[in-house]
Amino acid sequence: MHDNVIDRSKDITLLEMLDRVLTKGVILTGDIVISVADIDLVYLGVKLMLSSVETMEQIKSGKIIKE
């Protein structure tokens, strides 16, 4: 019976997973930077943003999920 509520569809799970891993969690810096202060942090914000946009486009076109 639980299966009726916990949706195990690949598409929804994938979408939820990508949303979390790309936009949530601990942030090591708020900005797109190559180096922060003295800790030599490399954060690939631009590439991530591109990836998120790609995901959004797929959602819009219905390739990932149609609501």
């Binding site: 994938l14 997973m17 990508l18 979390r20 891993v21 790309l22 936009t23 949530k24 969690g25 601990v26 942030i27 090591l28 800790i39 030599d40 942090l41 490399v42 954060y43 690939l44 914000g45 590439k47 991530l48 990836s51």
Partner: peptide, 27 residues
């Protein structure tokens, strides 16, 4: 990104953790 998320999921079954956003590299 999916591979990274799966690793975190496996780890979260064993540890209390805070997932770090994908793409955080340090030197």
């Amino acid at each position: 990104a999916i591979e990274f998320a799966k690793e975190i999921e496996v780890l979260s079954n064993q540890f209390t953790l805070l997932p770090v956003r994908f793409g955080s590299l340090m030197v």
